[in-house]
Computed example of a mutant assay.
Amino acid sequence: MVKVLYIAGWGRSGTTIVDNILNSYESVFSTGELYYLWRRGLRQRRKCGCGDRFAACALWREILDVAYGKRQPDPKAVDELQQRISRVRHTPSLASGPLSDEAEEYRRLLTRLYHAIGEVTGARLIVDSSKVPSGAALLPRMRDVEPYLLHMVRDPRAVTHSWMRATPQLDRPEPQLMQQHRPADSTVHWLVWNAFAERLARSYPNRYRLLRYEDFAAAPREGIERLLEFTGVDVRNSPFLDDTTVLLEPNHTVSGNPSRFRTGEVALRPDERWRADQPIGPRIAVTALALPMLHRYGYKVSVAA
C-alpha cells in the first residue's frame, strides 16, 4: 500500500512552499507537479528540482525503470492521452462511474508510477502537488493506494496579482517567462478549479482537508504538523528551526513554481504585496467575479488596500 497526498487548487495558492516543506521531512517524498512528467520532464527536457535535466536525474531514471521496465511509455503518446482524458471538465466522470478504455489505461499507468515512487524512495508519504482536479479524481480509484486530498485556497485577488507578475522560468534550457493570466481568466480558473476540488471531498471520506494560504502563512509549522498528523506521518525530526523558519532540503520535483529550486534556511512570511501594489481596476473585477465564493472561503468583499 502506498500513501499519496494530492494537493489540488488553482495555481499561485501557496502549494509549492507547502510541497517543499513536506519534502523536507525524512519520511516524505514530493514529486512536485507529477501531472507534467510526460510533457515538461520527458518531452521538453526541463530541469528536475535537483538541478539536473530530468532525463539525467538518476532517481527518476530508477523510478521509471521500476515502474515500466524495458517497455517505457512514449512521452508524446502519454501526453496526448492525458490531454484527451484528464481535462478539468472531465473531473466528475473520472471520479465516479465507468471509466473509458483510455481513462483506464491512464489510471493503470499512474498507479504503476506511484507504486514505483514508493518502492524506490521508501517514503511513508508521497506528495503530488499537480493541483489539477482530474488527477485528484482518479487517485481514489487506484489499487493499493491510500489517497488523501489537500485543497489549497488563496484570496483570488492575491492569486491574480501573482499571475500578472512577470516570473522567470528556471527549468528551461533557454530563459523564458512563465505564462501570465489576466484577472478575468485567473478568477474563472480559481472558481472552477476550487469548485471541482471541493466537490471531490466526497471521494475522500475523512481524508479531505481545506487549507487557506493565509492560515498556513500565519502559522506555518502548526499548519504543516497538523497536515502530517492528518495523514498519519510522524512529525519528529522536523525541518523547522522555529515556528516560522524552515530548512528546505533539495528535492526531485518534476515541475512547479520556480521557488521549488530554493533550498536552505527560509523565513516564512505572508505574501501580502497585492494589498499595496494591485491596481484598483483588477481588484474590483476579481472581487465581482469571485463574489459567490469569497464568503465561502472566509474572504472579505472589501477591495480597500
Rank of each mutant, 00 (worst) to 15 (best):
I284S: 00
P282I: 09
K47N: 11
A218R: 15
P183F: 06
H189T: 01
P250G: 01
V120R: 15
P183W: 03
R124P: 02
G97I: 09
P282M: 08
D19C: 15
G281D: 06
Y114M: 03
R275P: 00
Q82C: 03
A166G: 10
D271I: 03
P92Q: 10
G14N: 07
Q169C: 06
A67S: 10
D74A: 14
S27A: 13
D271R: 06
S129V: 14
D101L: 12
D185A: 12
R112S: 11
V266Q: 09
L228F: 02
M142W: 05
Y68C: 01
D185G: 10
P156W: 05
P205S: 11
P258M: 13
S96F: 07
G256L: 11
R89I: 01
A56S: 14
S100E: 07
Y204S: 10
L294C: 04
A217M: 09
V18H: 01
R157V: 08
L5C: 10
F230V: 01
R112A: 12
W274G: 06
V66S: 04
M293F: 10
E26W: 05
R84A: 13
G118A: 13
A219D: 08
I284N: 00
F240N: 13
S259C: 02
D234G: 13
A136W: 05
Y297G: 04
T16A: 07
L37R: 07
T231D: 03
E249C: 12
P173W: 13
Y299T: 05
G69C: 06
G256A: 14
M164H: 01
R107N: 02
A219T: 13
L125N: 14
L59C: 06
E119M: 11
L150A: 04
S259Q: 15
M1D: 12
E33A: 09
P239I: 01
Q44R: 15
L5S: 08
T244C: 04
Y297S: 04
S186V: 08
A55M: 05
R262T: 04
R207V: 13
E102G: 00
R46I: 02
V192M: 03
T245Y: 02
P250W: 02
Q180I: 10
A276P: 00
A95M: 00
V132P: 00
T31P: 00
W193E: 06
L138Y: 03
N20A: 15
G32Y: 06
R143H: 12
R260C: 07
R108G: 11
A55K: 06
